[in-house]
Nucleic acid binder design. Structure first.
Length: 574
RNA sequence: CGGGAUGUGGCGCAGCUUGGUAGCGCACCUCGCUUGGGACGAGGGGGUCGCACGUUCGAAUCGUGUCAUCCCGACCA
């Protein structure tokens, strides 16, 4: 490739609308151009990167026994009605109508399509297991696309779906995918952590995310991980242990106490001179438009995703003060937020976090403004709610649920995820096969996604410096750039051309910067775009030497033409 | 959806307060000069100032509306 012919332009300044480093650098280096919010053109440089990632994905998927196919992007409403997701998926689903007024959607994921397909094609357990995948543009109408390629509305995704006879088969398929994913990301130069996560809109029981851990803020997810064992989880799913609340001997007997103007835990602690850990906090949430109560220890926060899962709600949010007032009057109280307690409240559900179970002689609201009950105990003073789950936000410093290590927190970019779906889709969509006993049973499914374009952006987040992008050779757009310092100098230009042609004939991905630019411009562009190897042909060519420089380490050698070419081979074919 | 900000050549920005010739840097074209870390000189091309309506003799500038983008929040693979 001749630089003078390449379709790209580098920018000297960061685009004004870019926030994260990968977005800035990819735009500046001419890899991507934005069409509109969350929608980008992959320029030739970027497309080379994406194709390389796709090749790695294909090789590993094929090796794991999966088969590639390509399903339609346009999907019909009927299938989404069958799965029940047409109404549940929400505004993120890009919907449109055809000329007949028929509702269609641009595929955000393909569980419905694949399930419908497999139910028609596979009749017998003899045809199982099967794992099908595709690489395709996906569409999600994100509320707020941002961070460039890290959260787009149109993006490239590899999605795979496994169909098994039973749970045991699913476990095996799941494990195979987990292994394939680890390999894929490793080959892309990315260290990933497989973390437990919530399964969100896709559904299912077990799911893991593959996170590229970042020290910067560009990761969108908080990941908690153990400093001792292998435990790691998304904060929306992380569990942890914590020391029991210190039993405060201050209140031995339960009694009502006046606590004026103590609407917050902080104020209450100050007023009573107690630690927040002996308070039982009562929060009102609206879950699918019904009021519920959540109890948690005063020094801890509720993790809403966990709460949502614990009570099986689709949507959840904290109640407004009007809604609280309404619930109060319905229950015959008039207390303000801050003095609420579970006793006597007519909530749809009352759920307790595990952190409150061991509380003794604690402080709790009794639905009377400016009063609390102190020295309270379960059963004697207040009934412990029937539903008791872990709905607490785990934080750094708490104890690992698996060992005695300490949990640490970091940001992560989710580049892949895997779900055990079970029969969630196959049951609803009546996708069954005949087992060896002649019974019709639903497929046991799993699904597995990789954000291909996001992986590329994550790699830039991981591999860059103040001068630009330095993607590893496995996924970078090119391997080598040959730079004649002065294109008007015949010896320099011809020598550069010879090196270029020689490398090209050996199938290396090489570019010659034949532009009639000054050396500084060429060097800046080479650094910005990120060629792992730069061979500079300058004045020393008169002594038979060229400069061999590595982008990553900055290491520089003076070599003969021949040596330079064989060094390229050594480095790229290791 | 709430709060904040911004829309002016391809990119980054000034001009708007106080209405009157649309400007700067980069990029682009031509010529000269230069060629080891984003040179220099001379000349040149390109913008209905997001869009609509209004106020005015006159609107990038004032008003109303609308659209878009970005940030924070809520939400979310």
């Amino acid at each position: 490739m001749q630089m003078s012919k390449m379709f790209f332009q580098t920018l000297r300044e960061d685009p004004a609308d870019a926030e994260v480093i990968s977005h800035k650098l990819l735009t500046r280096a001419g890899y991507i151009r934005k069409l509109t919010g969350g929608i980008y053109t992959y320029m030739p440089l970027m497309w080379r990167v994406l194709k390389k990632i796709e090749i790695i994905v294909r090789e590993e998927m094929d090796n794991s026994g999966a088969q590639e196919l390509l399903m339609p992007i346009l999907q019909t409403e009927e299938l989404w009605q069958e799965s029940g997701r047409w109404d549940v998926y929400g505004k993120e689903l890009m919907r449109l109508k055809d000329r007949h007024g028929r509702q269609l959607a641009l595929g955000p994921t393909h569980e419905e399509i694949i399930t419908a397909l497999v139910r028609d094609e596979i009749r017998s357990y003899r045809q199982l297991p099967v794992n099908l995948y595709q690489i395709q543009n996906k569409f999600r109408d994100e509320i707020r696309p941002r961070f460039g390629l890290l959260r787009g509305r149109e993006f490239i995704m590899k999605d795979a779906y496994s169909f098994d006879i039973d749970e045991e088969g699913l476990d095996k398929s799941y494990e195979i995918m987990a292994k394939a994913y680890t390999n894929i990301f490793k080959r892309c130069g990315l260290e990933t952590k497989m973390v437990r996560s919530d399964s969100g809109a896709i559904g299912g029981n077990v799911s893991h995310e593959f996170m590229v851990l970042t020290q910067t803020d560009s990761g969108e997810n908080d990941v908690l991980y153990c400093d001792t064992c292998e435990y790691a989880a998304n904060s929306n799913h992380a569990e942890s242990r914590m020391p029991d609340a210190r039993i405060n001997g201050k209140y031995e007997k339960s009694h009502k106490i006046e606590t004026p103007n103590t609407k917050t835990i902080e104020q209450l602690c100050k007023f009573l001179n107690i630690p927040p850990s002996i308070i039982c906090k009562t929060l009102v949430y609206i879950a699918d438009s019904k009021p519920i109560l959540a109890l948690i220890r005063g020094d801890k926060e509720v993790e809403e995703t966990k709460l949502k899962n614990a009570i099986g709600a689709n949507e959840i949010r904290i109640a407004t003060s009007e809604e609280i007032a309404e619930l109060m009057s319905k229950s015959g109280f008039s207390a303000e937020a801050g003095f609420i307690g579970p006793k006597g409240i007519k909530a749809d559900k009352i759920i307790a976090d595990k952190s409150v179970v061991s509380l003794k002689n604690f402080v709790i609201g009794i639905n009377e403004t400016d009063y609390h009950l102190v020295g309270a105990n379960w059963s004697q003073d207040v009934d412990l709610p029937e539903i008791c789950e872990d709905i607490r936000l785990s934080v750094a410093g708490e104890i690992c649920p698996n060992c005695h290590g300490k949990l640490l927190i970091t940001k992560g970019i989710e580049v892949g995820n895997i779900f055990k779906l079970g029969t969630k889709y196959s049951e609803k969509m009546k996708a069954t096969f005949t087992d060896e006993n002649g019974r019709e049973i639903p497929f046991i499914m799993g699904c597995y996604g990789i954000g291909v374009s996001r992986t590329a952006a994550a790699a830039v987040e991981r591999y860059h410096d103040e001068f630009g992008i330095k993607l590893p050779k496995e996924i970078g757009p090119f391997h080598v750039i040959v730079v004649p310092v002065n294109t008007n100098d015949e010896l320099q230009f011809n020598t550069a051309k010879e090196i270029y042609e020689e490398l090209r004939s050996q199938n290396f991905e090489v570019v010659i910067d034949d532009r009639n630019e000054r050396a500084g411009v060429k060097f800046k562009d080479a650094d910005l775009i990120g060629f792992p190897i730069r061979i500079t042909v300058g004045k020393t060519v008169n002594e038979g030497l060229v400069e061999f420089k590595l982008r990553d380490s900055g290491e520089m050698l003076k070599l003969t033409k021949k040596e330079a070419i064989s060094k390229v081979k050594n480095i790229l074919q290791d």
